[in-house]
């Protein structure tokens, strides 16, 4: 669906002394996203996730690198390609002058939909997101979670082939979050490709066929959650000492168990999860 080669973004920043410097937000990454997969982008704050999405969707131009949609090069302008993605942005960016339904209508029109088509579609989506009662509300008057639900609805109006979701479940209550997860799985079953960034590791673990872990603009891993855990070691020994927790990873429970008696204190053996992988690869947590 999407192939990316040597994608780089350097932001021009002007310092206090008016000196121009460049901040490398995305640093020479190459990857591909298969049709129909749910692809996760994980990384600490400022890693470059949003910047990647903004480049893939033509909102900003890459400093260098190439992006292909279905084998066709994308320069950020081609309207046929721009119709494919739907984007749930990380921040709220509604038109404040319009109400909830009008924001969706504007979206539909911008994507060239016919009235007969989008009227029902908008109604359905508002229904699904439990926002029907708020259709005529000014967007500024919606609660935080409602705004996020409306962002998701808006991204879906034109039936995107690929959905980019930049932390879509932030600020949603647990029930709604689960509902969004179901929606994502449903969409995926119906042939929609999904790229999702999240700080909820559980979310990536549950949903993603593959997750890339990004740090400082570089991919430091890109594999299925299962393989990522396997590579680190499927079992974790977690030891609570005086200096906080420390961890060591083992191929299987037996080797881990053999290791445990060497430690005094509170020691626990458990399966490795994606969070371990994430912190191990991006963080500086104590090793055993």
């Amino acid at each position: 669906m999407i192939e990316v080669f040597n994608l780089t973004k350097k932001f021009k920043t002007v310092g206090k002394d008016k000196k121009i410097s460049f901040k490398t937000a995305v640093d020479d990454i190459s990857f591909s996203i298969e049709r129909n997969e749910i692809f996760g982008l994980l990384g600490p704050n400022g890693a470059g996730k949003t910047t990647i999405i903004r480049m893939l969707t033509g909102q900003i131009k890459p400093t260098s690198g190439k992006i292909f949609y279905d084998g066709k090069i994308f320069d950020g302008n081609d309207p046929e390609i721009k119709k494919l993605p739907g984007v749930v942005p990380q921040h709220i960016n509604f038109d404040r002058e319009l109400n909830a339904a009008e924001n969706l209508e504007l979206h539909a029109r911008l994507y060239g939909m016919e009235k007969s088509d989008y009227q029902n579609r908008i109604k359905e989506l508002l229904d699904y997101m439990e926002l029907s009662d708020y259709a005529n509300y000014n967007v500024a008057k919606l609660s935080g979670g409602m705004k996020r639900r409306l962002l998701i609805a808006r991204a879906l109006v034109h039936r995107p082939k690929i959905l980019f979701m930049d932390e879509p479940t932030v600020a949603l209550d647990p029930q709604v979050r689960r509902k969004i997860w179901d929606l994502i799985k449903d969409l995926s079953k119906n042939g929609v490709t999904i790229v999702i960034t999240t700080h909820y590791i559980e979310e990536a673990e549950k949903l993603c066929r593959r997750t890339a872990i990004i740090d400082k603009g570089k991919f430091i891993a890109n594999d299925s959650p299962k393989n990522l855990c396997e590579r680190l070691g499927n079992f974790t020994v977690e030891c609570e000492g005086t200096e906080g927790k420390s961890y060591k990873f083992f191929r299987d429970r037996e080797t881990a168990a053999k290791f445990v008696p060497e430690f005094s204190g509170n020691v626990k053996i458990r399966p490795t999860n994606l969070e371990d992988v994430f912190i191990e690869l991006t963080g500086r947590r104590n090793g055993l």
């Binding site: 119709k83 921040h91 509604f94 911008l110």
Partner: peptide, 22 residues
């Protein structure tokens, strides 16, 4: 003038940049 706020504060200009509209 409202376009200034749409660009800087509300970011609603992004909708247009994202869309197939030239």
């Amino acid at each position: 003038i409202p376009i200034h706020a749409e660009r800087v504060y509300h970011k609603s200009l992004e909708e247009y940049l994202l869309s197939p509209v030239s």
